[in-house]
């Protein structure tokens, strides 16, 4: 369980990233955070694995305040909380298999990882996860030879190989075309249901949020302005979250039949 208690974050330049956030995310939920760019979605999600550090309040992951974590504790937290990025963040000159095995870094000793001494189980796990996202045939291709959608699937395999309890996805489909976007979201949704991994996704496309989320959290200017199950959400809710009427480019389109 993840619990934000009066969490606030002020960046060194004075910008307020988060303002007094109080949110509780239960195990197994598929939560989509919506809001315009600059609303604080990224800051919210990156606080959970401490890529950014909130400046006030407390943030509990499995009932432990993670805001005081340093060094070893922090790395341990990050092995538990996997992350998927908008730009996939694969190492482009390295092959797919090694990129996926990098998900084991937090579980592997420094020397073992430097000399590629991964256990049989780890390698099998990595290969199995590539299979799950249907990209095992690209095992030895360099990451930069793949298309955007394929790279994002590899990054999903990487995060799965980490065996996380939580997955954070920061705008995972913003750089993809509509059909590929739906494919990636479908994988995330499937993993959430099959492995019971709590998943928190940042999106700014309304239709995709509606299609895949269990629960929607709306953010504006660093504050949570809506929090509720997807059944309670209407177009009016989005207009309130965005503070303006809904436009064509707020929709991704291309929904799967």
């Amino acid at each position: 369980m993840i619990e934000f208690k009066n969490v606030g974050l002020v960046y060194p330049n004075g910008t307020e990233g988060l303002k007094n956030i109080n949110v509780k995310i239960n195990d197994g939920e598929f939560v989509v955070i919506v809001g315009l760019s600059g609303a604080g979605k990224s800051t919210f999600i990156r606080s959970i694995n401490r890529l950014v550090t909130p400046t006030s309040g407390s943030l509990l992951v499995d009932s432990e305040d993670i805001l005081t974590y340093k060094g070893k504790n922090l790395r341990k937290l990050r092995t538990k909380v996997g992350m998927i990025f908008q730009n996939y963040n694969l190492v482009k000159r390295t092959n797919v298999f090694k990129n996926v095995l990098a998900g084991r870094l937090g579980h592997t000793g420094t020397l073992r990882s430097i000399f590629n001494l991964y256990s049989k189980e780890d390698k099998a796990l990595a290969y199995g996860n590539l299979n799950r996202v249907n990209i095992a045939e690209k095992l030895y291709n360099r990451a930069d030879e793949l298309s955007g959608g394929q790279q994002q699937r590899v990054s999903i395999a990487r995060v799965l190989t980490q065996k996380p309890k939580y997955i954070l996805a920061d705008e995972p489909v913003a750089s993809l075309d509509p059909p590929t976007s739906h494919q990636v979201m479908t994988y995330l949704r499937k993993i959430n249901k099959e492995d019971n991994i709590t998943t928190i996704v940042n999106l700014h496309f309304i239709d995709m949020a509606m299609e895949y989320a269990d629960r929607i959290i709306g953010m504006r200017a660093g504050e949570v302005v809506f929090d509720g199950p997807v059944s309670e959400v209407t177009e009016k809710t989005f207009e309130e979250i965005y503070g303006r009427s809904i436009r064509e480019d707020d929709l991704r389109g291309g929904a799967q039949e």
């Binding site: 990025f85 730009n87 390295t94 870094l105 937090g106 420094t110 430097i114 990054s155 990487r158 980490q162």
Partner: peptide, 24 residues
């Protein structure tokens, strides 16, 4: 970006450097 990803998957400084900086 890859360095951030390695850090986010729990790698320590040496692992981050070896896995995402060295290949680049």
């Amino acid at each position: 970006n890859p360095l951030e990803a390695m850090r986010a998957s729990g790698g320590n400084v040496f692992q981050v450097i070896w896995y995402s900086l060295v290949p680049q």
